[in-house]
Amino acid sequence: MSTQIDRLRELVQPLATQHEMDLEEVKITTAGRRRVLQVVVDTDEGVGLDACAELSREISEALDGTEIMGAPAYVLEVTSPGAERPLTEPRHFRRSVGRLLWLRPHQGADLVARLTAVDEDGVDVEVPGEKGRKATARRFAFTDIAKARVELEFNRRAERQPSGDESLKEA
């Protein structure tokens, strides 16, 4: 017997695929009398507000033709993953190359490192040096990673973009 979440996934997955999105999560939460059906989708380029709105309309229409959600009212939210969501799939790591990660290996201490590369077997990271020491490159197989998530960086400097005047001078 399939659960309500399984049935929702079966309904939503083809719609997400049509939009070239990965269906990351489907969950139902309850707050008092209010139920919220949350659908989390992602792509390699991220998911924009317009794409979420369009997918939301399609999911709503599809749900209207079923009894999956039952009689009580609910709110449908279609969203992208949060910035600090757990990285659990190789595609999550691939989408985070260049970002700072918090990583907990199955063996050894937690660390914060820059994700430099991802392949089918694991990840390469650069661990910043402490007290003037040089950064260290490390490799982790996916099977060696217990938990990982992106660390938010508020003070990282963006790559310098030429101003309009500079780009004209170069032309």
Rank of each mutant, 00 (worst) to 15 (best):
A31E: 15
G32H: 02
R33F: 12
R35I: 02
V36Q: 14
V36L: 15
L37E: 00
Q38H: 11
Q38R: 15
V39L: 13
V40D: 03
V41E: 07
D42Y: 06
G46V: 13
G48P: 04
G48H: 07
L49R: 10
D50C: 10
A51P: 07
A51M: 13
A51L: 13
C52V: 12
C52D: 08
A53Q: 13
E54W: 06
L55P: 05
L55H: 05
L55V: 07
I59P: 00
S60L: 08
S60K: 09
S60A: 12
E61H: 14
E61D: 15
E61M: 10
A62Y: 07
A62P: 03
L63I: 04
L63T: 03
D64H: 11
D64I: 05
D64K: 10
D64T: 06
G65W: 02
E67T: 14
I68F: 06
I68A: 00
G70Q: 09
G70H: 08
G70D: 09
A71G: 10
A71Q: 13
Y74T: 02
Y74D: 00
L76S: 05
E77D: 12
T79D: 03
T79W: 08
S80F: 04
S80Y: 02
P81S: 04
A83Q: 04
E84F: 02
E84Q: 12
R85S: 09
P86V: 01
E89W: 07
P90T: 04
R91N: 10
H92T: 05
H92P: 03
H92R: 07
H92V: 03
R94Y: 09
S96Y: 01
V97N: 04
G98S: 04
L100V: 05
L100E: 06
L101M: 02
W102P: 00
L103W: 02
R104H: 10
R104E: 14
P105R: 07
P105T: 10
H106Y: 11
Q107E: 14
G108F: 03
A109E: 15
A109V: 05
D110P: 07
L111A: 11
V112H: 12
A113E: 06
A113K: 01
R114Q: 13
R114L: 12
L115K: 01
L115G: 00
V118R: 06
V118P: 03
D119K: 11
D119T: 11
D121C: 08
G122A: 11
V125D: 03
V125W: 01
E126W: 04
V127C: 03
P128W: 10
K131A: 15
G132D: 11
R133A: 15
K134H: 13
A135Y: 10
A137F: 10
R138W: 13
R138T: 10
R139D: 10
R139A: 11
R139H: 14
F140G: 02
A141V: 04
T143K: 14
I145K: 02
A146W: 11
K147P: 02
A148H: 02
A148D: 07
A148P: 02
R149D: 01
R149I: 01
V150L: 00
E151L: 09
L152H: 06
